[in-house]
């Protein structure tokens, strides 16, 4: 199992001719919530996918003191780096329980109780087909499934996407709860209010480059940053 802070060093991600992430440097502190903000196509999801090994990249990713660049996705998951992908990506035709078991694939024993502790609603629906859950429940299942892999680093890609405000509030609580258990969180969000309320540190990406970084309250003090990147969010 890896431990320590995560460092991205001049990370580049290409999709054919498209240069999605252009040499960014990020440092993610262990045990904290780091958020990556930015508009559509700024390179946020690509950055997360690079950390988990789901896309080819150049540059280097170091966890603690260990470079993980040659490591395939399943090895990274075994080592505690787990992505909860955008659009939930739950297995629609499988039951809630089977989804959770799939999440625990790299672990000897599936700790279902852990998921039910954080998401009691899933326990009631354990044998329900996942595709028939509500949107909020599906998102909870997606996070619960990622938790089943017993991550040290949990990468959340737009967990609030398409959810009602009440549900988003619930998701925020869950993220805090997970972080309290000592899991490092990297949160990609378009909902800046939510992300900044949770994060210890924020990066703002623009066109594949880091446009600004700092503590959320520092970022919000700057009028320019607030107007330009944070959609006029008030501190």
């Amino acid at each position: 199992m890896l431990s320590g802070d995560i460092y991205l060093k001049s990370l580049n991600v290409f999709y054919g001719p498209v240069h999605a992430v252009k040499g960014i440097d990020l440092s993610i502190e262990e045990g904290k919530v780091t958020t990556i903000l930015g508009a559509n196509g700024a390179g946020k999801s690509s950055t997360l996918k690079a950390i988990v090994g789901g896309v080819n990249y150049t540059g280097s990713i170091v966890v603690g003191t260990v470079p993980i660049d040659g490591m395939p996705v399943h090895k990274r998951v075994e080592n505690g780096i787990v992505l909860c992908p955008e659009g939930r990506g739950i297995f629609y035709t499988m039951t809630v329980k089977e989804n959770l078991l799939a999440g625990a694939y790299t672990r000897k024993h599936a700790k279902l109780e852990l998921a039910f502790e954080i998401f009691p609603v899933l326990k009631e629906r354990i044998n329900q087909i996942a595709g028939t859950l509500s949107g909020g429940e599906q998102q909870m299942l997606a996070i619960a499934r990622a938790i089943m892999a017993e991550p040290k680093y949990l990468l959340l890609d737009e967990p609030s996407l398409g959810l009602a405000p009440v549900v988003i509030e619930k998701i925020a609580e869950v993220i805090r709860e997970i972080n309290k258990r000592g899991i490092t969180i990297i949160l990609v969000e378009q909902n800046t209010t939510l992300a900044l309320s949770l994060a210890h540190k924020a990066y703002i990406l623009e066109n594949g480059r880091v446009a600004a970084e700092g503590k959320p309250d520092e970022l919000m003090k700057s009028d320019v940053i607030r107007q330009k990147y944070l959609g006029g969010v008030r501190a």
Partner: peptide, 23 residues
């Protein structure tokens, strides 16, 4: 079986199954 569930997971969504640590 664990591997059987992995087979179904891959058949439904290969990319996400990979993120679950399934080879």
């Amino acid at each position: 079986t664990k591997f059987g569930i992995a087979v179904r997971a891959v058949s439904e969504n290969e990319e996400v199954a990979g993120y679950m640590g399934i080879n």
